[in-house]
Computed example of a mutant assay.
Amino acid sequence: MLASVSKMMSHGFRSSKQDFMFGPWKVTSAKNHIMKSKDVERLGEEISMPCLPEMLFGDNVLRIQHADGYGIEFNAIDALKRVNNMDDAVKVACAQEWQESRADSEHSKEVVRPYDWTYTTDYRGTLLGEELQMKVTETSERIDMEKLKARENIMFFDEVLLFEDELHDHGVSKISVKIRVMPTSFFLLMRFFLRVDGVLIRINDTRLYHEAGKDYLLREFSTRENKIAELKHVPSGVYADPNEIAQYLTLKLTEYEKLELPETQPQSDQEETIQ
C-alpha cells in the first residue's frame, strides 16, 4: 500500500497524518492543533521573540525522508528561528510607514518592537540525518518548470500550514508548504507571503524538485517584493492572492542549490520509479 492516512480528535481539533512512499523516500504530512499558549511562551523565550504568530502550528510538518535516514523537513519552529530579531532597522522604517497609514488604530503603536513583527523568514527547510546528510552546493542547473506543467498523474498531494498572523487585521503574514508526487518525480513549494496594507507585499519561495534515479535534489529560493505604491497598475483585488500577485512583484533575489545524496547508497535505492 503506497499511502496511509490516520486521523484523530484531539482537544476538539481534527488532526491528521499521511504517509506516502516514493521508492526509497517516505513523504509525511502531519497536521495538528494550534500550539498551546504555555508552549508558545516557552518558545518565545527560547528564540528571544516577545510575540509569536497568533496561529502557530508547532506540530505541523512536511517531511521527505530517505530509507537511509537522511532527508529534509519543513516545520514552523525552525522557520521562526530564521526570523531576523536582531537587526530591525529596515523593518522599523516599514512599521513607521504602516503607523502613519493606520494612525487611528489602537494597535498601531504595537508594531515597533525589537524584532521583525512581519515574521519574514528565509527558511528553506531543515536537513535531516545524523550519520548521513545531504550536501548542499551551488548549482547552475534549474528546475524545469515547463516539464512540471506537463499533465502527469498526481499520486499524492497535500498542503501544510506552518503559521499565520493577520497583523491586527491590517495584512497577513503566512507560511505554508505543499507537495505533489508524480510517477517519476516530486515537487515541493514552500511560500512565505506577507502583505502589510498600504505598505508592501513580499513573497519568499522555496522550490524543491527530485527526479527518480537522480542522485540529488534541486532547491531554488527566491524573494519578490514591492511597496504598495509601486503596484498602482495592479488591480487591488489580487493583492490578497499570493498566486496572482506573485507575477507582478519585482524579483529581488534568487539562489540555486543542489542537495546531493550521500554516496553510500545501495544500488537498489536508485530504482525509484513507481511501477
Rank of each mutant, 00 (worst) to 15 (best):
H11W: 09
L259K: 03
A212N: 09
L161C: 10
F13D: 05
R82G: 00
G237H: 01
E271L: 15
P114A: 09
N60I: 03
S108K: 12
L43C: 09
D169C: 08
F22Q: 03
K252G: 07
L56S: 06
L217T: 07
H33D: 14
M35Q: 07
A3G: 12
E272W: 08
Q18S: 12
H233M: 07
K109Y: 11
A67F: 04
K178N: 14
I203Y: 04
F156K: 08
L189Y: 02
T184M: 07
K36A: 15
R63V: 04
R124M: 11
G58Q: 01
I72V: 08
Y119S: 07
G44E: 03
E211I: 11
L162F: 12
D144N: 15
M9R: 11
S268P: 02
V177C: 15
E54N: 13
Q133G: 09
Q18E: 15
D215E: 15
H66W: 07
K31S: 14
P242G: 05
K227F: 13
I179W: 04
H233L: 08
A30H: 04
K17D: 04
I154A: 08
G125M: 06
F157M: 10
E106N: 07
F74S: 05
E164W: 04
V40L: 09
G129D: 05
V5T: 13
R219A: 09
A150K: 15
A246F: 11
V136E: 11
T223V: 15
T120Q: 12
M49K: 06
E100G: 02
Q267E: 14
K214P: 02
M55R: 13
H233Y: 05
L162T: 06
N75P: 10
W117I: 10
M1Y: 04
P183L: 02
I72P: 01
W117V: 07
N75C: 12
H168Y: 15
F22W: 08
L189C: 09
F163Q: 02
D215M: 12
R195C: 05
D104L: 11
Q18I: 09
N204W: 05
I34G: 00
R102T: 08
V136D: 03
R14E: 14
A93E: 13
Y70K: 03
L52I: 07
